[in-house]
Structures are given as structure tokens and as C-alpha cells.
Design a protein around this nucleic acid. Structure first.
Lengths: 242, 242
DNA sequence: CGCTGCATTGATGAGTGTCAAAATTGGTGG
DNA sequence: CCACCAATTTTGACACTCATCAATGCAGCG
């Protein structure tokens, strides 16, 4: 049972830019279906030339890049509203894989209509490029984290980012949000070993900055955590979605 | 004295997708001037909301992100054909600074006409998004490098990437290309200390894999270097430019 | 109730960072 | 043409963060 775009769950959240009625009508034509996946399911594979692109409607996942050595680098975490498959759509090949970490519902688009999309709806193309620019911005910040921050700073930074993102999406209640990731995911995202990540998380808990256990992250003083991370807390902006 | 777009130096290089005559005519209207800068000149500042966007016509530079701690992370290296200011154009704020490392000539566009650009020329908007996707792809690879590769692998990887990029642009002669960067730049790009970078570069030279001195990089066996870096050598694709 | 995946803890050492100083290079002015 | 200065490269010694190895505990699950 496919949700009509006019009832799109994303368009109801106020962390997203509202779509106009016309835009919704158009997206309805562009949308070819809906995909529901279980935790652990691969959605797009690195190197693949996928015929389908997605927008996450609900649930969480990860983007990860596999190396020849068998290790992997987590590029970032996927939240509702994220567009999945930009690289496949434009370059014809994904630079990373995407995998579900919770149950997810995805809105499915056809890659073949991608160019038409650009041609007929420049404001939507603009939105897509906006998302790409935002991603570039974020990856630059991540690069600075892995390259320059200590393990403690890096993990604090990651927790701040995740918490803020979750907060904007209404996933935070009582200073607490669900985190479906494993410590290995976080370790791979920050270029740290699993053991050291575990010990560093322990340190954050000892200092009462961030407490993460049982898939649940609690942060009482976000500013204090941001201070440890040497980051500025900035209000989230409304994002477009595709 | 401003070059006419029909004589654009980028359009003559065959590593770029040729622009149609109509596209050139349009770009001519979009182009508002040309900027020549000396080495060391800041082109765009992190956090700024620049009114102008650029395409590098010649010369090289770096993108760098400054941290509150005074350290910096080099995001990547700027080559001819690179678009500069995507984030300013779309997000209204740069996530990093851009600085010249050689003399550079830049093609200047007005940010205010950016949206018009999208609206009237979807194929050019498509190209811009293509570049953004390519950047995202590259940053993902860089993330994997900093996060997962050893210092030796990382530096080998960086040399391979730079050499390939230079090669595509016709900057390589006799297995040698000019490198206007400092070891500090490379260290900051890979999250390594200057001293360790220096010693590791020495190791690559000892092993006759890559020899960089006097601003000049020589690589005789690129495949061998790529093997050390644990990367695949892939043929460069034709890129669009703006 | 024995798997299997994940979290946790302790011990040890390698890979890098940091500190300090010398060598080299390039530019500038006398 | 030389003297001087700043920036960069190079080297050596030492410290420390973080990776690796190895076990144990714990929970979910067929």
C-alpha cells in the first residue's frame, strides 16, 4: 500500500520545507513505488549502477564505503528525508553502499526519468543540488573531525550531530533518542578502533556528557558536549526533500 | 582583458565535455568578469556569503576548513575546471575557505543570477549537480583514506590522485608534474603531522615510488604506487565544467 | 540451552604526534 | 654579489594516543 505524496510523512514535519501543491502532484508522477526493508538490508551497493533512487521516508541506515583490505568506512548516517542514490543518478555509479539499520520505508524513483526531472522542474532540481551542497558541507566537517579531532572530541562531535539531527526530526523525547547503530558503526565512521571507541564512550558517560546504552542515547547538556567536541551548536535549517 | 567564453581555455582541453555553441553563448552572459590572483590570496572565506562564484580557469589552490582550535583541515586541492562556491551559491555560506597556491585565473559569476541559471538552462544545472555528486564521491573516498589507511598508504593515495588529475589536464610531462603545495598542505589534507608526512614522503622516495622535491612530483610507476595505496587506477572520465 | 553478535575490560606495543634544532631554499635589500 | 630573514624541509629523540590481541560477560534467538 503506497502512500500518496499528498500524505507524504516528510511534508508534515516542520524541519522540512513544505512542498507546494503542484510540486506534490509532480512528485506523485515521478514516484514509482515504495520499498520497505528490514534492518541489515542493503539498499544500494557500492559500484552499482542502480536503476532506482530513493528518499528515506522513515527509519535509519548508514552509508559505507568498502575498501579492498576488507575494512569499511562509514560515510554518514541516513535519516528520514535523506535522498539516496545521487551518485548513481548522475555518475552512473555509487561510491558507497547504503544499508538499513532499522526497518525503513523508502520512496522509490526511476533513474531514467531523472533528467526529465531536471528539465521540467528546475525548482526541484535546485532542491536536489541544495541537498548535494549540504552533503558536501557535512563531509567537509567530517573530514576535519577525523583528521584533526582526538577520539574524545570526535565521538562527542558525532553524538552532537546525531542528536541534533534526531532532534530536528522529532525523535528526541526527555533528552533521549533511539540509536539503532552499533559501536562498530560509530568506530568505522570515525576511523577509530572498536575497543577505543568503547572506552571513549565510557569516558563520556563517566563525565555525564552522553550516555548511550540499550540503543538509546541520552544527552542532558548538549552545550557541554559540544564544548568537549569543540563545535558550535547551530540551529538546524529547514531542508528540502525530494 | 577578459577572455571570451568561445575562447575558454577549458573548452579546448579534451578532459572536459565540450560545451555546445549555445551553451557558450549563454555562459558568456552569465560570466561577469575574470579574476587573477597571486599565490596565497584567499578567494572565498569559510562562513562567508559570497556574492560571487568562480570556475578556475588556470592555476591551483586548496580548499581548507579552519577549526576553533587553530588547526586546519585541507578538504581537497583545486585544479583548473573546478567550480568554486557551490555552498555559497546554494546554502548562502561556505563551509570552507579557498586559497590560491599558484597564480590563478578565475571566471567570475554572479550569485544573484544563480537561480535563473537553473531555471533557464537545465542541462547546465544538471552539469553543476554532476560536479557536486563527483565531489561527494571524492570526499567519501578521502574519508576512507583518512579513516582507514596508514600514513604510507594515505600519502601514496594522495599522490596518485593528484598525479592522475594533473595527467588528465595535460600537466604531466616526462612522468613529472609541478606541485605548488607544501608538505604542510599535504599533512593537513591527510590529518597527519608535518614531521611524519615528511618522513613518509622520504620512504616513498627511497622505494622509488614517488619523488617530490623542488615543487616537482615525479612518478615513474603509477601502478606500483597505486598498489601501495591499495587503490584501483581508473581512467578519468570527462567532466563538465561551468 | 548452546549459538552468535555485541559490549566490556585489561595488557601490550606500534604508529604517529610532539619537541627541538639544523639544513636548505628563496626572496630582499644593501 | 653577498648578507640576512622567513619559510620550508629534514633529522633525531622521546612521549603518548590509539590499535591490537585476548578474554569475559551478556542478551537475543532458534
Amino acid at each position: 500500500m503506497t502512500t500518496l505524496c499528498k500524505y507524504c510523512p516528510l511534508n508534515r514535519k516542520d524541519s522540512f520545507q513544505k512542498l507546494s501543491k503542484e510540486a506534490i502532484d509532480y512528485m506523485q508522477k515521478f514516484k514509482v513505488g515504495e520499498l520497505a526493508v528490514d534492518p541489515g538490508t542493503p539498499i544500494l551497493m557500492q559500484g552499482s549502477n542502480a536503476p532506482q533512487l530513493f528518499t528515506a521516508l522513515s527509519g535509519m541506515g548508514i552509508r559505507e564505503r568498502h575498501l579492498a583490505t576488507g575494512e569499511k568506512q562509514v560515510i554518514n548516517f541516513v535519516f528520514p528525508g535523506d535522498f539516496i542514490g545521487l551518485q548513481a543518478g548522475l555518475l552512473g555509479e555509487m561510491g558507497h553502499s547504503v544499508e538499513a539499520r532499522t526497518q525503513m520505508r523508502l520512496c522509490v524513483f526511476n533513474r531514467s526519468e531523472f533528467y526529465t526531472f531536471f528539465k521540467n522542474h528546475p525548482e526541484r532540481a535546485f532542491d536536489l543540488t541544495w541537498l548535494a551542497a549540504m552533503e558536501e558541507h557535512f563531509l567537509g566537517e567530517t573530514l576535519a573531525t577525523i583528521g584533526q579531532r582526538s577520539a574524545l572530541q570526535a565521538i562527542a562531535w558525532a553524538m552532537v550531530k546525531i542528536f541534533q539531527r534526531g532532534s530536528a526530526l522529532g525523535m528526541v523525547h526527555n533528552n533521549t533518542m533511539e540509536l539503532p547503530y552499533t559501536q562498530r558503526d560509530v568506530a568505522d565512521a570515525l576511523g577509530l578502533s572498536l575497543v577505543h571507541t568503547n572506552k571513549t564512550l565510557g569516558k563520556l558517560k563517566d563525565r555525564q556528557l552522553a550516555s548511550w546504552s540499550d540503543r538509546s542515547l541520552q544527552i542532558n547538556d548538549l552545550q557541554a558536549l559540544a564544548d568537549v567536541a569543540v563545535t558550535e551548536l547551530r540551529p538546524a535549517r529547514k531542508r528540502p526533500f525530494i
